[in-house]
Design a protein around this nucleic acid. Sequence first.
DNA 1: CTTACCCGGGACATTTTACGTCCAACATAA
DNA 2: TTATGTTGGACGTAAAATGTCCCGGGTAAG
Lengths: 345, 345
Amino acid sequence: MRDLLEIQEQLLPDLMDTLKRRYTILHQIRLSGVVGRRTLAGSLEMTERVLRAETDLLKAQGLIEIETVGMRISDAGICLLEQLEPMMKELFGLARLEEKIRKAYGLRKVVVIPGDSESSPDVKRELGRVGARTLLSYVHSGDTIAVTGGSTLAEVAEQMTALAGGPLKGSWFVPARGGLGESVEIQANTIASKMAKRVGAEYRLLHVPDLLGEDAYQSLVHDQHIQEIVHVIRQSRIIIHGIGDAMEMARRRKLDDGSIDSLQKDGAIAESFGYYFSESGEVVHKMLTLGLRLEDIMRTEIVIGIAGGRSKGKAIHAVLKFGHEDILVTDEAAALEVMKEIETL
Amino acid sequence: MRDLLEIQEQLLPDLMDTLKRRYTILHQIRLSGVVGRRTLAGSLEMTERVLRAETDLLKAQGLIEIETVGMRISDAGICLLEQLEPMMKELFGLARLEEKIRKAYGLRKVVVIPGDSESSPDVKRELGRVGARTLLSYVHSGDTIAVTGGSTLAEVAEQMTALAGGPLKGSWFVPARGGLGESVEIQANTIASKMAKRVGAEYRLLHVPDLLGEDAYQSLVHDQHIQEIVHVIRQSRIIIHGIGDAMEMARRRKLDDGSIDSLQKDGAIAESFGYYFSESGEVVHKMLTLGLRLEDIMRTEIVIGIAGGRSKGKAIHAVLKFGHEDILVTDEAAALEVMKEIETL
DNA sequence: CTTACCCGGGACATTTTACGTCCAACATAA
DNA sequence: TTATGTTGGACGTAAAATGTCCCGGGTAAG
């Protein structure tokens, strides 16, 4: 398919440019939901007039609908975008990025979406959508799926929609580990239940704080109900988790200064499912809580990491070095940072 | 490929038009050999200036060479044309035409080239080239190929060039049937020998008139040399033949008025390899001469019919109805006429 | 040789299109 | 009600496309 485009480019030298431009516009409209001409022109850095010419064409082709409130992508437009996606990845060079990262860490699959989810909420939403799609493509009926907290995972849950093949009866969504310290919207429990509801699956929750004293831990660990749910969690076939900056997570979890200093001393860069990783991928600290343990993760069939944004580069690198990831979903900005880490090796 | 085309039609409808335009121009330059701007503008019905803009671009892309004598296609241009050909067939709707005709008569393959070979010598030349290429794609070393006469077959011979795989040693070109009545350039004998020479194959000729009296027939049929060559002819694995209008052929062969009347009465529409066919594909008359017989044709492995021009539509239909063709090579004008015949069934 | 013809490329006035930039009428949410 | 954002219309200007010549040069026929 690529060949054919290159052949055509001989006769139509500006083919690729136009293709990219129109795809980007259509894509952006989809990300934005309903958006006006000026706003769109601003975010795409185009003048109003040329954007207008393009959107007129898109409308004439039935790819978008224009109403008094703004422009919205049509079903045909969505269909077109999805068909075009692999090709555009090639064109934008994202496919190469994916492959390089995949090889560098020996992953099963890497998905890179264009943009920077830190600087654009639209891109973050897209990251969620792609993450959801990726996750669902691996889920079978009857699976147990462990999820972590975090804003990215919350977005994944938000973007999750039932599969074409009907609801996922008999599958279970569970939180990966305890974590009641965070705000409720981005708690693993909330996310697990939301995901389950969205795809018609079941869920079980684990109401355990993320910061346990030794005593509390001992008492919880012997609780009948908790033992039961922890057992389910540890059997997960799939885990999908966010990746965070170590210091930021430590602060968010309100660790005391001593712990933070100790983390810093140990070179903690990244945090994921309650473990802190150094640059070389070693676990330098772990939260004392219940749920998945390191050894569970190591033997989990499908581990999906998802994180985006330029600042996440080092953290992603650290977790990938850990070496038990299978799939990475990220954005262009983070992927480029990860590439830098790869190159300095 | 079809998918890609549909996507492009949706997102780049304007570019597809210019793609068509530029392809047509490049194609026409190839057909014309060396041609000037004004002449080309005339035959493509464009104004000089817009053609000039296009040819400037084609030159900048290295697809044509512009010299003081005129414009000529470059190697890169030929390469491009050939790579783009299947796509353009889709774009121009020729692929659909081919498939419909193929299915309607249960043929193995149908090739339709754009244009009308009756109104343009260039298109006729192209028909010859495509016919030659099609024929050669089926020839193996050691085959015997029977050819008929006619201006189209003469053009095929003219356009035939040795294959990339070297000369066709051990293959034989032979005339399908006797036919000394026509002018020498379009006689089967001439064509067979020219084809053989062009591809480095052997040939044998059959010097027998196309109109024999019963006595002459009987004496020739017992001739040792003639028996020998006729035997070779009847063993042909491949036959390539033109298709003509019955009345026109009858006149060209200088049949007497009585015979012509009788042909007309029997509803003869088409003529091919010495047989006259009615609209329903039945043989209503045959020439008394030597060479391939109907039963030979019926069991010939590969029967290639080639004919172009708007007026040939009915004749082609008649021969295809006969039901022993495998491959048809024709032009757009004739194909559209054939389609009409199909639709009236 | 001459002559008639066709060639590419330069030139230019004119038309058409693209573009940037406003504005008016309308819808929506606060 | 007000503030904001939307579409579609409008318009002057800049840029590109176009139709139409012309010129010098090369070709082939006479």
